Simulated scan of single mutants.
Amino acid sequence: MRKILTSIGTLAAAGLLTVGLTTPASAATGTLYITQNGQTTAHTNPTGRTCYASDSTKGDVTFSNRTDQPSYVTDNKCRNLIAGDHFLRSGQTRTLPAGTAVVWPS
């Protein structure tokens, strides 16, 4: 009986350590604002790996990152980083060509 209780206790401790040490993927906290063609769209707590793309037919786009995490500036399908400075830092606002997108790393 003592061996069974010791085994159960060991398994319970291992399970608690596993749950306690893992951290889930989290969204950025704050708001991403996308302004294009005079209209602004707000995305609260944007999630990782979600592509926030602009319309490639509506002119330049302004991204305003009011979150606690930086994002990447990519092409409209979020596959390739743009040339040059490919970050949209926390607190930063950038106006970029139509067909540009931002994505948060997971």
Rank of each mutant, 00 (worst) to 15 (best):
T100L: 08
Q36E: 12
D55K: 00
T31I: 06
P24D: 09
Q39P: 02
T29N: 10
L21D: 04
N45M: 04
G38H: 06
R2W: 07
Q92T: 03
A13T: 15
V103Q: 13
V103F: 00
A27K: 06
C78L: 05
K3N: 10
T10A: 15
H86E: 09
I4S: 06
R49E: 08
V73I: 15
C78N: 01
G38E: 08
T29K: 04
T6E: 05
I34K: 07
L88I: 05
H86T: 08
T23N: 12
A13Q: 03
G30R: 02
A13H: 01
G15W: 05
T93D: 08
G30A: 05
F63P: 00
D75W: 07
D75C: 07
V102Q: 02
G84V: 12
T95A: 10
T44K: 11
T67A: 04
T22L: 14
T40P: 07
H86G: 06
T29Y: 03
P105W: 08
A83K: 15
T10K: 09
L81K: 14
P24F: 12
T62Q: 12
A98H: 06
T40F: 09
D68H: 02
L16Y: 04
G15I: 15
A101P: 03
C51H: 07
V103L: 04
L32A: 09
W104F: 15
G15E: 01
A12Y: 05
Q92G: 08
A27Q: 06
C51A: 06
D85R: 05
Q69R: 15
D75V: 10
T35Q: 04
Y72V: 08
G38C: 06
T18M: 13
S7C: 01
Q36V: 07
T31W: 02
L17C: 11
R79Y: 10
C78Y: 01
N45C: 09
A98V: 05
S7R: 01
N45Y: 05
I8C: 04
W104Q: 10
R79L: 15
G59L: 11
S54T: 04
A25H: 08
G99E: 08
T22N: 11
G30Y: 05
T62L: 07
G20Y: 06
A83S: 15
S7G: 07
T18D: 03
L96S: 07
G20H: 04
N37C: 04
H86D: 14
T44V: 13
L32T: 03
A25C: 01
L17H: 01
R79H: 12
T22H: 11
A53N: 13
